[in-house]
Simulated scan of single mutants.
Amino acid sequence: MKRWLAPTFLLLAACAGAATGNQATAVVLHGQRFTTELATDEPSREHGLMMRTRLAADHGMLFVFPLSAPRAFWMKNTLISLDILYFDANRRLVSMQLNVPPCKSDPCPIYPSHAPARYVLEVSAGTARRMGAEVGDVLKIEGDVGPVR
């Protein structure tokens, strides 16, 4: 009877991980590769990088939306400064909000895209400038982002 416990536990753990929307993939922008957590559903997009005290230089979070639209992010409960990079449906960089500080007052400022976006990449503040990212750069996503809700 114990034979079924391990496979059942692994299946439940995999389902629980998928439900969070935080599976990982890699992206490449302007020649730099980042390991990214994926935010592909509303709960994971709302939580984003909240409560993180650090973000490695080669890590980030990729927010994937079902459709392109004007996007706006804020930094509520985000403890680290970020670069917020907005990409259209063709994964072309259309807008950047750089060195966005943590929110220190309520209400928190809003950081909008300047064009419709379907993908948003958050990386450590200063990363975009350091690697020379420019509007028009193409984001390469390695692998599949899975279902987007």
Results as ranks from 00 to 15, higher is better:
Asp106Tyr: 11
Arg45Glu: 02
Leu49Tyr: 00
Phe87Arg: 10
Ile84Pro: 06
Met96His: 02
Leu62Arg: 03
Phe63Lys: 02
Ala128Gly: 08
Gln97His: 06
Arg54Ile: 02
Pro112Cys: 05
Ala69Ile: 04
Ser105Pro: 01
Asp106Asn: 14
Ala69Phe: 06
Ser68Ile: 00
Ser105Lys: 12
His47Leu: 11
Leu67Ala: 13
Thr127His: 09
Arg92Thr: 06
His47Cys: 00
Ala128Glu: 04
Pro66Val: 14
Asp88Gln: 08
Met75Gly: 10
Ala89Arg: 14
Val94Ile: 13
Ile84His: 05
Leu67Gly: 11
Ile84Val: 12
Thr127Leu: 05
Arg54Val: 01
Asp58Gln: 14
Ser68Asn: 01
Lys76Tyr: 07
His114Val: 03
Ala89Val: 10
Ala115Ile: 08
Glu46Leu: 12
Arg52Lys: 14
Glu46Met: 12
Leu82Gly: 09
Ala125Met: 15
Leu62Gly: 03
Tyr86Gln: 05
Pro70Asn: 13
Pro116Arg: 03
Glu122Arg: 11
Pro109Arg: 04
Pro107Met: 10
Cys103Thr: 08
Arg118Thr: 11
Arg91Ile: 09
Ala72Met: 10
Ser44Lys: 00
Gly48Arg: 00
Thr78Val: 15
Tyr111Leu: 05
Pro107Ala: 11
Arg71Gln: 15
Pro66Phe: 12
Leu79Gly: 03
Leu55Val: 04
Tyr86Cys: 02
Glu46Lys: 14
Ser124Tyr: 11
Arg45Gly: 01
Thr78Tyr: 00
Thr78Asp: 08
Arg45Ser: 01
His59Lys: 13
Arg118Asp: 11
His47Met: 04
Ser124Thr: 15
Arg91Gln: 15
Pro107Thr: 08
Arg91Lys: 15
Arg118Gly: 10
Ala115Asp: 14
Met75Pro: 04
Ala128Thr: 06
Ile110Ser: 15
Gly60Phe: 03
Pro109Thr: 05
Ile84Asp: 02
Asp58Trp: 11
Ala89Lys: 10
Val100Glu: 00
Arg92Glu: 13
Ala56Gly: 12
Val123Met: 10
Ala72His: 05
Leu98Tyr: 02
Arg71Cys: 01
Pro116Ile: 07
Phe73Gln: 09
Asn77Pro: 11
Ala125Ile: 13
Ser95Phe: 03
Ser68His: 00
Ser113Arg: 05
Arg92His: 15
Ser113Met: 07
Leu62Trp: 02
Pro102Val: 04
Asn99Leu: 06
Leu49Ile: 04
Ala117Gln: 09
Ile110Phe: 08
Phe87Tyr: 08
Gln97Ser: 14
Met61Gly: 04
Lys76Cys: 03
Gln97Asn: 15
Val94Lys: 02
Ser124Phe: 08
Val100Ser: 01
Tyr119Pro: 10
Lys104Ala: 14
Ser105Glu: 15
Gln97Glu: 14
Pro116Met: 07
Ile84Phe: 07
Ala128Pro: 09
Phe65Ser: 06
Pro116Ala: 10
Trp74Pro: 04
Ser113Lys: 06
